[in-house]
Amino acid sequence: MDTCQLSTQEIERLARVIHPGAWAIEAERPLATLLGSCIAVCLFDPQARVGGINHFMLPNIRRGSNDDVDTLLSGAYAMESLLNALLLRGAKKVRLQAKAFGGGTIINTEGQAMSIGVRNAEFTKEWLAREGIPLLAADFLGPWTRKVLFLPASGDAFCRRMVTNMATAETIAREERSYAETLLRKPPAGERKIELF
């Protein structure tokens, strides 16, 4: 698929949508996500022409009764998972490049929304710097939600800022809540739990 000649509307129509707590790798198919205070990091290897995107809600894991949920929603897990999957697909760490987006304020309740966005953005910059992966482009913070489109083969990314209105904020909050609730459900009896190590 030659995505170079497509408009952003056509790219969005063809894109695989990535939800909170998820990540994906593609060689050709575009990837898309909608962000509030969450962050999406696009990692790509321009020589291997493979890339991926993640979507995380929290910078780090909190220890408590919902460790599995916190792990899946955390930036630490999302970044390591995406990096390792890219390496398995032939990417080389020394060639990886990044573009990152999000950390906006969608609902400001006693300053918490902004602090989550700021913490997410700081975590992202620190993690990439620690791993030696250059951050080529970023659009963090502000009073916006963002629609991100990513072309893994070329590394091109498009970010559309949208002024947050109540309908957009409710849609994003509902999607994030829905995902978190699916993680809270206990697996059916007899289903084995997978341990991450």
Score class of each variant (00 low, 15 high):
residue 114 M to T: 04
residue 19 H to P: 05
residue 170 E to A: 14
residue 191 E to G: 05
residue 63 R to W: 12
residue 123 F to Q: 03
residue 74 S to E: 01
residue 78 A to L: 06
residue 44 F to L: 02
residue 117 G to I: 00
residue 148 V to R: 00
residue 23 W to P: 02
residue 5 Q to S: 12
residue 12 E to G: 11
residue 194 I to F: 13
residue 48 A to E: 08
residue 171 T to P: 07
residue 178 S to Q: 11
residue 99 K to A: 08
residue 43 L to Y: 00
residue 66 N to T: 05
residue 172 I to H: 08
residue 122 E to V: 06
residue 18 I to F: 00
residue 128 L to A: 05
residue 194 I to L: 11
residue 108 N to D: 15
residue 135 L to A: 03
residue 19 H to K: 11
residue 3 T to W: 07
residue 52 G to S: 01
residue 124 T to I: 01
residue 137 A to L: 13
residue 24 A to D: 04
residue 102 G to N: 05
residue 194 I to T: 09
residue 1 M to T: 08
residue 27 A to G: 09
residue 68 D to N: 08
residue 173 A to Y: 14
residue 136 L to I: 15
residue 108 N to S: 15
residue 136 L to G: 08
residue 62 R to Y: 08
residue 69 V to N: 01
residue 18 I to G: 00
residue 42 C to N: 10
residue 44 F to H: 13
residue 82 L to Y: 06
residue 110 E to H: 11
residue 184 L to D: 06
residue 106 I to Q: 03
residue 105 T to D: 07
residue 145 T to N: 08
residue 167 A to P: 07
residue 82 L to G: 01
residue 155 G to P: 03
residue 25 I to L: 13
residue 69 V to M: 04
residue 138 A to R: 15
residue 88 L to V: 13
residue 50 V to I: 15
residue 111 G to C: 03
residue 167 A to L: 14
residue 23 W to H: 14
residue 94 V to L: 12
residue 135 L to I: 04
residue 48 A to F: 10
residue 12 E to L: 15
residue 90 G to Y: 14
residue 22 A to N: 10
residue 144 W to E: 10
residue 66 N to Q: 08
residue 89 R to C: 12
residue 94 V to R: 15
residue 95 R to G: 10
residue 153 A to Q: 13
residue 169 A to S: 05
residue 192 R to V: 07
residue 46 P to Q: 09
residue 136 L to F: 15
residue 61 I to P: 01
residue 7 S to D: 07
residue 45 D to M: 04
residue 48 A to K: 14
residue 74 S to L: 01
